[in-house]
Design a protein around this nucleic acid. Structure first.
Lengths: 298, 298
DNA sequence: CTGAAAGCGCTAACAT
DNA sequence: ATGTTAGCGCTTTCAG
């Protein structure tokens, strides 16, 4: 025992895994790291994984489903214990196949349009997030509001936002709904479009902070002051948001909690737990900063 | 063969690894993901790794050497093929021990004060980067310049900057050298200090873009316009920098190239290549945007 | 050129 | 309590 220490003996995890059918490795599959939201999630997820003595195999699909499938196959033949798959990184059809074969999988921050059939999922209550954003703008007296959103993948944010507006007697006209992918650039061009309209909105809800950064940039380029001329509210509360000019008001996603719930559902499956909850929602909340203010237009 | 396909047979990488003494896994060890520079590097590194059919085990030490050692031990007993270790993530003493045992290791973007004894390293020519920053400010006619830098870990940037200033007959007074870690917050407070001096500088070189973002924020809070009242230049050229207000002038680090060279040195070691170069430098270059302008003070 | 067997380093189920 | 052995799924070597 003692001389094992001296000879620098190290138990071989590979051999143990082969024998145990357990690798203490989980895979983390995500679509990109470009949106700053993902690094923050990765940091939280890797941390909780390590808390449970798991190591993380990292896999970036660059929004490319084919690449996702390839990577997944490689992981499968490595006997990875479980998979955390983030929204937009893989084809749900592929995932479903694996899940039906009994592979432990948790969807994290999944697309809002597809209901994954029975695959455990932890996500933010995006419908509520949309409502919170709408309510905040309503509280500030805004009537002419617009939204920048990926109508496919972020359907719930849109629905929540529209419903609260509706309740306040404000119809969200089609022209006030700008489609855009979750990138700064698309936030920028969507805002350009919105501001080009004859009656421009007094407030914009961008479905992610990353888009909201583009909105801020576009407003500035158009010679508008934020928040005096235009209020902007985002969603995610990435670290950057507190340091923008002006600091961004946003609907925050509790990332550590998201990570913990995700890991929890994954471990339950790995440990052979029978009834794993199919859905767990995490509650978003408003973080009020300086990019929104009361509406002063007639 | 064909029916193996039908039965969904998958060759077991674990067993192969056990037999082959080769796992086709590399470890990527870094200090944090908070600084946006790291996600960009991770994306590049993971991409090149995959190009060579390697998968990436991800490990974030949160600047905590002890955690780094723990993780490294776990990886070692997994027979990871090689290690890419980024600056500030692990104790060089530990790394040296492993390297002497014959473990393939490449240091990437390493601290500028420690010369790792014989461990292959690929980094940016930070001395040159400092010179480029200085030259740019000199070209714009700035005389009263300051630098925000981690004097320990970013010594070369400081030396390069100071040397070029020196050649132009400008002594970099001690009070114009502000220490700071590579964070937005420390860039902010360092700039506050600098601007509080009776004769404030007309230009600031921040050793990373992440710090420069803090500098921009501090200047704004102090009621100064950038670049009219204060020029700011950074280093890294993270994606964000192009979208700041004003867009940040910076010394760019070619990240894809950094990643490729790193992977190249690592593969050489893994393949048992005899003479692996001890150091490979990547050339930085100036990206001129709107945060710097000609000096207009008397 | 195809087929059997030993071994990679560990765990777990045995027998002593 | 301790010691031995079969087996995890693959590769490689050695026979047939």
């Amino acid at each position: 025992m003692q001389c094992a220490q001296e000879l620098g003996y190290r138990s071989n995890v590979l051999a143990r895994s082969l024998s145990n059918h357990k690798t203490f490795t989980i895979a983390l599959i995500l679509p990109t790291l470009t949106n700053p939201f993902y690094p923050e999630i990765v940091e939280a997820l890797e941390h909780t994984a390590r808390d449970h003595d798991y190591q993380t195999l990292f896999c970036n699909t660059h929004f490319h489903f084919e690449l996702g499938r390839l990577q997944m196959e490689r992981m499968m033949s490595r006997w990875v214990d479980g998979y955390i798959i983030m929204g937009s990184s893989m084809d749900i059809a592929d995932i479903t196949r694996y899940f039906q074969q009994g592979v432990p999988i948790v969807l994290c921050d999944w697309q809002e349009n597809e209901a994954p059939p029975g695959i455990p999922q932890v996500s933010v209550d995006f419908y509520r997030a949309g409502q919170l954003a709408a309510q905040h703008l309503l509280d500030l007296g805004h009537q002419h509001v617009a939204i920048i959103v990926d109508e496919q993948q972020q359907a719930l944010r849109l629905e929540g936002f529209a419903s609260t507006m509706q309740e306040a007697g404000i119809a969200l006209l089609h022209e006030k709904i700008q489609s855009g992918a979750s990138t700064l650039e698309s936030g920028y061009s969507a805002t350009k479009n919105l501001l080009a309209h004859p009656q421009r909105p007094t407030a914009i809800f961008a479905a992610t902070d990353w888009m909201a950064m583009g909105a801020l940039e576009a407003a500035l380029d158009a010679g508008l002051r934020v928040p005096e001329d235009l209020s902007v509210i985002g969603l995610d509360d990435i670290m950057l948001s507190a340091h923008l000019h002006p600091p961004l008001t946003t609907i925050a996603v509790p990332k550590a909690q998201l990570a913990q719930e995700t890991m929890d559902l994954l471990l339950k499956q790995i440990n052979g737990d029978k009834d794993v909850p199919a859905l767990r929602l995490v509650e978003p909340y408003l973080v009020s900063r300086q990019s929104t203010t009361t509406n002063t237009t007639a």
